[in-house]
């Protein structure tokens, strides 16, 4: 028998700190598979976020930098401009990219920086204890919306990918999900394309990845995948936005 699936070379052989059933581990692996397939391990530089994935550099076996909360795209802009031969990507959650970092996100996109962005949307703040995120669904219970998010006091789920797709400087925006094996394959294709876009100097490419957070959604890992399919996708439809 021959090996048909195993750990990618650029994913360190260690256990992660993530909760059981968390989507970060899958997303980390997809990025490593793409880095290996494109043979860019010596050229790639990741910018890690603040959030649950803050120590992603402990798992990725290639160059990484950390950025202050929300500032990953500002740091990535500097790295890419100083080292244009590198392949630079940011890995950011909804709190990092769509809340505290909205400013940096919009302006990096509007400038058309030649970067790739992997945006992990789990509709909640994981690291800080399950508070409402900008992407939290209406009616979704969180630590700060115990009876469910109400539009009157907390506004509506922020569709930042749709917003970014409307900017002239943005080359590509796609939304994928991790709720089933076939969707994971599609998510990997989207991430790979975002990297290829950068290598072909096409400009700013973002892949939003809907990812489960069983712990703070108060669900089992399997229920969390079903909730993505039944609820999250209805608010954040999958596919190519630009």
């Amino acid at each position: 028998m021959e090996k048909v699936f195993g750990r990618p070379n650029s994913l360190r052989n260690v256990a992660t700190h993530y909760c059981p059933g968390c989507g970060h581990g899958i997303a980390h692996r997809l990025i490593c598979e793409v880095v290996d397939e494109l043979n860019i391990r010596e050229r790639v530089i990741a910018v890690a976020p603040v959030g649950c994935a803050v120590i992603a550099y402990d798992y990725w076996d290639f160059d990484c930098s950390e950025a202050a909360h929300g500032r990953a795209l500002a740091v990535a802009t500097a790295i890419k401009r100083v080292h244009p031969e590198t392949v630079v990507f940011t890995y950011q959650g909804d709190g990092d990219l769509a809340a505290i970092g909205t400013n940096e996100t919009i302006h990096a996109a509007n400038r058309g920086e030649n970067l790739s962005v992997v945006f992990i949307n789990n509709a909640i703040y994981g690291m800080t204890g399950g508070q409402m995120a900008p992407t939290t669904l209406l009616g979704q219970k969180t630590a700060t919306t115990p009876s469910g998010r109400q539009a009157g006091s907390a506004g509506f789920p922020l569709k930042i990918s749709e917003m970014l797709a409307s900017l002239a400087g943005v080359y590509s925006v796609e939304r994928a999900s991790l709720h089933a094996p076939q969707e994971i394959v599609r998510a990997k294709k989207a991430i790979k394309q975002a990297f290829i876009n950068q290598m072909e100097n096409k400009g700013f490419s973002l892949v939003e990845v809907l990812s489960p957070c069983p712990t703070y959604w108060g669900m089992s890992p399997k229920e969390a995948l079903d909730w993505i399919k039944d609820a999250l996708i209805k608010e954040f439809p999958l596919g190519k936005l630009k």
Binding site: F5, G23, G25, R29, L178, A180, P181
Partner: peptide, 19 residues
């Protein structure tokens, strides 16, 4: 059957598949 669905969805990448 060695379809690798389990490995694709494993968040810890702890499944190796042979076929």
């Amino acid at each position: 059957s060695g379809c690798a669905m389990c490995a694709l969805i494993c968040p810890e990448c702890c499944i190796t598949v042979y076929k």
